[in-house]
């Protein structure tokens, strides 16, 4: 069943892609093929392969229970927050919190969580910023 839903989703994607390709504005100076042809070929392949997936689905994949999906969703939220807040709070703090969170969710104890978070953050800061001179996001405290 999952594969059939996946295939239908692929078909919708192919149709949407075709419309987006047809909506490309052609410039008056164009080559013989133009900017639309290749994307449309791709959409056709996408559609055909999705159709094949719908018609001949593989056995059901192993889906995790809801609690595990929530776990992944929470991790995604943390990563998005990290991406957004990185320029605001600075590299060291944001990274310590985010890596600490991941370590905690993977089953570290409290002390190990703090150590992993701080260690990862400082370690990367020292190696990438202080040694290799990579520009990392600066927070209000300058790191």
């Amino acid at each position: 069943m999952s594969d059939r839903i996946f295939g239908v989703f692929g078909l919708l994607l192919a149709i949407g892609y075709t419309f987006a390709a047809l909506a490309i504005e052609e410039s008056f100076l164009s080559d013989a093929v133009g900017p639309k042809a290749f994307p449309i070929i791709i959409a056709v392949i996408l559609g055909l392969s999705s159709l094949a997936i719908v018609l001949r689905p593989d056995p059901e994949p192993h889906w995790p229970p809801l609690a595990r999906l929530a776990e992944i969703a929470a991790a995604i939220v943390v990563m998005i927050l990290y991406a957004q807040l990185l320029p605001v709070v600075g590299f060291v703090i944001a990274t310590a919190v985010a890596s600490g969170y991941l370590a905690w969710r993977l089953g570290s104890s409290l002390i190990a969580t703090v150590l992993t978070g701080v260690g990862t953050s400082i370690g990367i800061y020292v190696i990438f910023h202080l040694i290799f001179g990579l520009a990392l996001a600066r927070g209000p405290f300058g790191f």
Binding site: M79, Y82, L102, A103, L106, G107, T116, T120, I124, L136
Partner: peptide
Amino acid sequence: PRVLMPIVAMVSFV
């Protein structure tokens, strides 16, 4: 992995 994976994620972001 509970130590390794956070490092992998953060190195990717950095």
